[in-house]
Design a protein around this nucleic acid. Structure first.
Length: 718
RNA sequence: GCGUCCUUAGCUCAGUGGUAGAGCGUCACAUUGACAUUGUGAAGGCCGGAGGUCCGAUCCCUCCAGGACGCACCA
């Protein structure tokens, strides 16, 4: 054996050997006789990385954990399938490419046109895909690449259209004119979950709209941070039990607001907070979700006064065409002039921004496509909310750690209808065609001319919601993979996309498959830097998994991401940690070398001669205990405990104790003593190597190949 | 506002109803070897604070403090 473990050489060579053997494909395992055709199935899909760039530590951690599950399952004889894929990540990818084009060519998407932009985005996606796939393989993930999927490929696109039609036919997808979250920067709607709230300081104005025809001031003072929207007010809402304003409830007032006549009706609504501001709320139905809902309850009209570029569209020379922030100042100044401002104070405010573009959300009334979550449907006449709730717990989905179940239920309670149409171009086109008043929803375009397809695309999570079955062949109900591997055994992903993705997969599966998409959900934490901060380019604290793999080995990188990371908890990673596990690789290598150098002369490599009473030795008893503990930890998804246990056992028991204690007999003993000492050492060591395989696949495969020539550890029995 | 999690060695974190563990770091000694990447040992903790349950609490319960995060219709 080489005195030094050449990480790069070995890891690249072993990766190729696995590729050639094809054992990541369960069909190959069955064909080659390493797995029984009727063995229990273990299936898991890789959360598809976005094609927006390169692999980061979060991906590496995910791959490490999932590969432990998968390799363990395969070694225990299960028909094991792990499907790889990538996500087109609609908004994320398009806005990334748009940003680059703007920077380099000073052009926006409208300058390029739909076709050209899509060509560029697809080109970028292709490149990202190739990079990411190469990087995933570098980490040693035993994925079945023969089944690779892409959310935007032929099959998945077909599945998307089929799912849309099915949900439309069930009455769950509808087109409605409602207030949606409009991102003026990205020029698209986004869902509630794509909003990020940022705390900022805002000025809260307390004011009166203006004067009534009789010359008196509007009787109710109201407070707002968004003065410019008051041009669109159609109501003032107060709490039903608020005595201050009781006499006005039900009355309608015509009032001049900064030169624009507005009509407001005073209504009583439970949602109004009596203690906030003046206890009276100016209702702007067109530009606030809450106000829209109040307006619905009281049959109030709405008036859109802000356009899609975030500019005022009210016919008032003071503000027309101005940006909202500018209009706010102008309006404030005008009200001051008129003596209508009663108070101005600084308050902290949560401002809604778009996750991807950072644009400040402008609620706007728009005609969009939605998924109804409160509508009973199908034979069971249950709502999607009810089905999503019952799926977890009684329905058979368990979430680990368990506390996330509560968070999941809490999220469902607050769930509104899901807006699924987007005004961006990269993604699945809404499968709806229009001709005059006619609307046609189908998997394929209708026959005949004059049909125009809806220009919008679907929320990227619509397609990823289908992932657990679209990767298995659905909508072909008879697809062999679907029959063999659905529902998935495990879904492993980060807790940060519990709502975005996990919940949507459950939703989609309940509608389309009539049941749960997977049985066990394991949520891992986020990888942070050694100070607990998020890794980001601007902070310059990114630790790149590929750099670490090249420097210290994919094995060491993987182990550093598994040990010390328990379910649902964030992991703090430093280069020192990775280096520490590289040292462990070296230790393992040197134990192997020691055995290799001290092998008795008459020992047949690969043989396992029987040595009397070896099973009774206390070292073997201890080995068996370790085996039981490690197995239990893995079964319980306590990978960090399993990894740590093995780390200590190999280093501080095998190397420090057993090897030291047997050294003398091995080197200076009688032939019988040599044989016995070697047999004992090789056994405890090789069995540990096998147990370490799911965690450190490369070095263990390499060493196993030296001691058991011709065998592949990847498919040896656990 | 509602909710969740965290608080344990200098740092980063495991962990258990029975007088505390790892890695990294520090110090002392040993070692040129299977080991560039080693070994042995040491120092270092009223397990955030206060109550409660218990024979016994770092662990279970209540409250408090500090920190992180999630959700919400904070106008």
């Amino acid at each position: 054996m080489e005195p030094r473990y050449d990480i790069q050489e070995v890891e690249v060579r072993i990766a190729k050997a696995w590729d050639d053997a094809g054992y990541a494909n369960p069909d190959t395992c069955i064909a080659k006789g390493v797995t029984k055709s009727d063995a229990e199935a273990f299936s898991i899909v890789l959360p598809p990385p976005n094609v927006t760039g390169t692999l980061h530590m979060g991906h590496a951690a995910m791959l490490a954990v999932e590969d432990v599950m998968v390799r363990y399952a395969r070694m225990t004889g299960k028909r094991t399938l792990w499907i790889p894929g990538t996500d087109h990540a609609a908004i994320a990818t398009q806005s990334r490419v748009e940003k680059d084009i703007m920077k380099e060519e000073k052009k926006n998407r409208y300058d390029l046109g739909r076709e050209e932009l899509l060509r560029r985005v697809n080109e970028f996606a292709k490149e990202s895909h190739d990079t990411i796939v190469h990087q995933i393989k570098r980490m040693g993930a035993s994925l079945d690449w023969s089944r690779e999927a892409y959310t935007l490929d032929e099959k998945r696109s077909f599945a998307v259209r089929a799912a849309f039609k099915k949900m439309y036919d069930l009455g769950l997808i509808y087109r409605g004119h409602r207030v949606v979250n409009w991102d003026p920067k990205g020029q698209t709607t986004i869902s509630d979950d794509e909003i990020v709230y940022e705390e900022r300081k805002a000025k809260l104005y307390t004011f009166r709209y203006g004067f009534l025809v009789d010359g008196s001031k509007f009787p109710i003072p109201i407070s707002t941070t968004r003065l410019e929207t008051k041009f669109g007010d159609t109501s003032v809402a107060v709490h039903p039990s608020d005595d201050r304003y009781k006499e006005f409830v039900g009355k309608t007032f015509d009032v001049d607001f900064c030169g624009t006549p507005i009509t407001v009706k005073v209504v009583a609504d439970e949602s109004v907070e009596r203690d906030f501001g003046t206890g009276a709320l100016g209702v702007t139905p067109a530009h606030s979700m809450v106000d829209w809902e109040i307006a619905q309850r009281h049959n109030l009209p709405f008036k859109q006064i802000i356009d899609e570029r975030g500019r005022m569209m009210v016919e008032n020379p003071l503000v027309q065409g101005k940006k909202t922030t500018e209009a706010r100042e102008i309006t404030a100044e005008e009200l001051r002039k008129r003596g209508l401002i009663e108070k101005e104070e600084e308050i902290p405010q949560n401002i809604a921004t778009a996750e991807r573009t950072g644009g400040i959300i402008e609620p706007l009334p728009k005609l969009q496509w939605f998924i109804a979550v409160n509508k009973p449907f199908g034979e069971k006449q249950k709502t999607l909310k009810e089905l999503m709730k019952s799926a977890v717990g009684t329905g058979g989905v368990t979430i680990e750690p368990e506390r996330f179940s509560r968070i999941y239920f809490n999220w469902i309670d607050n769930l509104h209808d899901w807006c699924i149409s987007r005004q961006i171009w990269f993604g699945h086109r809404v499968p709806v065609w229009y001709k005059g008043e006619e609307t046609h929803v189908d998997i394929e375009a209708p026959e005949g001319a004059d049909w125009v397809q809806d220009p919008d695309t679907l929320d990227t999570w619509f397609s990823s919601g289908l992932w657990p079955f679209s990767t298995l062949g659905w909508p072909d109900e008879n697809a062999p993979d679907l029959k063999a591997y659905f529902p998935n055994t495990v879904m492993e992903t980060g807790y940060d996309i519990l709502f975005f993705w996990v919940a949507r997969m459950i939703l989609m599966s309940e509608v389309i498959m009539g049941g749960i998409p997977f049985r066990r959900v394991y949520l891992h934490g986020l990888v942070r830097d050694d100070k607990g901060r998020k890794m980001s380019k601007s902070l310059g604290n990114i630790i790149d998994p590929l750099t670490m793999a090249d420097k210290y080995g994919a094995d060491a990188t993987r182990l550093s991401l598994i040990i010390g990371a328990s379910a649902g908890n964030d992991l703090k990673l430093s280069e020192d940690r990775v280096r520490g596990y590289r040292n462990f690789s070296t230790k393992i290598w040197n134990i192997a070398r020691f055995l290799d150098m001290n092998r008795p002369a008459d020992w047949q490599i690969g043989s396992r001669p029987s040595v009397p009473n070896i099973d009774l030795r206390q070292e073997i008893v201890e080995l068996n205990t370790v085996y039981k503990e490690v197995t239990a930890h893995i079964e319980n998804f306590e990978f960090h405990l399993a990894g740590e246990k093995l780390y200590h056992y190999v280093w501080h028991t095998i190397a420090d104790v057993i090897l030291e204690q047997e050294k003398k007999r091995l080197q200076e003993g009688t032939p019988e003593e040599k044989t016995e000492a070697y047999a004992l050492l090789e056994r405890v060591f090789l069995e540990s190597v096998a147990m370490l395989h799911p965690f450190m696949p490369f070095i263990t495969e390499e060493i196993y190949g030296i001691f058991r020539p011709g065998k592949m550890l990847m498919v040896e029995r656990w």
